[in-house]
Design a protein around this nucleic acid. Structure first.
Lengths: 118, 118
DNA sequence: CCGTTAGTTGAATAATTGTTCAACTGTTTT
DNA sequence: AAAACAGTTGAACAATTATTCAACTAACGG
């Protein structure tokens, strides 16, 4: 009958590799979340904002001046960073100060900097 | 004359923060490269491929089977990973085996996994 | 209370990008 | 030599997304 296929399924070393890899890989949801996290990091404006916040909390206007961009553009990106729980905001009078919500980000970026500098 | 402006420039704590942050931030090119690296990581297919390769080198067909995607789609993404020097390829007969080109990737992903698992 | 400053938001536009499809290059097998 | 298999590639399409613009809210100062 389908002898050839059966033999392949049992003997084929490729199938074994696939099986092994499948077991070791993080679950689908985790992998999706990782991609989503990196997607947030994968924009120059957002990496600029985040690395700026490594040094000090800043209000929106300061970030605008630092990066030479409009308040609207920065605010939109801060919203993305807020929704991803990467930054937090606190209001002081008319100004809103943003800061990092998490230390992991710093470590991930340190690794990335190490990588791009070879 | 422009007293008000001068006083602001000297006294304004915002200006000082911006100055300090500017000094501490990585140079523009490095920041761009970091964003580019994260952009490559920011796609589910590519994160799936990379985490699969953490465990073992694999040929294109195996990756296709593992992820349930076409050869073309996988090949296109492997090209992106190759161009970013994240994976390397070696030909064995008709098959092309891919493997990680770098250990940094593993460390960056470990940090990311830690982060998404809170 | 009115004007100003700081920041947010929704819609629109423009650019980027992931997958599919079809045609292609190599390599092995018969 | 031809068929079959593994993989690559370019064009096309669809979907996502970053910035701009304009209108808005919130807080402060006179």
């Amino acid at each position: 009958m389908t002898n050839k296929v059966e033999i392949c399924e049992v003997e084929n070393p490729h199938e074994k590799v696939i099986e092994k890899v499948k077991e070791m890989m993080p679950d689908e949801e985790t992998l999706y979340d990782i991609a989503e996290l990196f997607k947030v990091f994968g924009d120059s404006t957002r990496t600029n904002i985040l690395t700026a916040l490594f040094e000090s909390e800043m209000c929106v206007c300061d970030i605008c001046e630092l990066l030479g961009m409009t308040k609207s553009a920065i605010s939109h990106q801060l919203r993305v960073l807020r929704q991803s729980k990467l930054v937090k905001a606190r209001r002081v009078g008319k100004e809103v100060f943003y800061s990092l919500a998490d230390d992991h980000v710093v470590k991930i970026f340190e690794m990335a900097i190490e990588h791009v500098l070879e």
